[in-house]
Amino acid sequence: MRANSKEQIIEAAGVVFERYGFKKTTMDDIAYAAGKGKSSLYYYFKNKEEVFEAVVAHEAEHLVNEINASINVSKPAVEKLRSYVNIRMKRFVQRGNLATALNDNFLATFSFIEKIRNNYRDIEIDMIGEIIKEGIEKNEFKPVDTNFIAEAILTCMIGFEVPLLTKSNATDESVEKINNVIDMFFYGICT
């Protein structure tokens, strides 16, 4: 029952943080949205920062699961990478608390945000790296430094986040541009 209560708090807090932002959200707002007393929140979390960290971790877990479901099917590595990029970038356009944690400069002043950013970056590099390794093993890709290429691809995606977040109606165009960058990584720009 307690895990269910904690899950309810995290789900409700996610909605509240998304609506009001981290700065304006209070523990009272979260308690009200969860239908709990404030003491219930403090049973699970020390403060608003811990609640936000749990919300972001929850969203990251869902995103990773969604990506894994897409890339763990039998298809060429290039298509797995495209699936990864498309799911990730579309999720960032939808904004959410994970995107906020990774992109909001105000939040960068909190030490827990740096931890979230580093953890999620490591997860992404590992996921991209595994796709590249699989492509090398299946002779779809030339042998390359998988970690370097994974970091380069992630850097490209991060570079597109701000335009995507500010021009959410241009989602398909931005994803197409990212796919063009993927093509350049795999096929080069030479004819």
Score class of each variant (00 low, 15 high):
R121P: 08
L98P: 03
K90G: 11
I116W: 08
K133W: 08
S111I: 13
D29H: 01
I153Y: 06
L102W: 06
K138Q: 09
S111C: 15
E7Q: 07
N118D: 13
P76A: 07
K177Y: 10
M157I: 10
I132M: 06
L41G: 00
N118G: 15
G188I: 12
S168M: 15
E66M: 07
N86I: 12
M157H: 06
K177F: 10
E79G: 10
I123D: 08
V55L: 01
K167P: 12
I10P: 00
I71V: 09
T171V: 08
Y42V: 00
S168R: 11
F141K: 03
L98Q: 05
S111T: 14
V51D: 00
D183M: 13
Y84R: 04
K138E: 11
K142T: 10
E137M: 14
E50A: 01
D29T: 00
A150F: 05
E151T: 13
A31C: 00
K23L: 05
F148H: 14
A101P: 04
I10K: 00
S70R: 13
S40Y: 05
M89W: 02
E11R: 10
E137R: 11
T26P: 01
V181D: 02
V162D: 14
D126P: 10
E140D: 02
I125K: 04
Y42I: 01
E161W: 09
I67D: 01
Y32F: 10
G35Q: 01
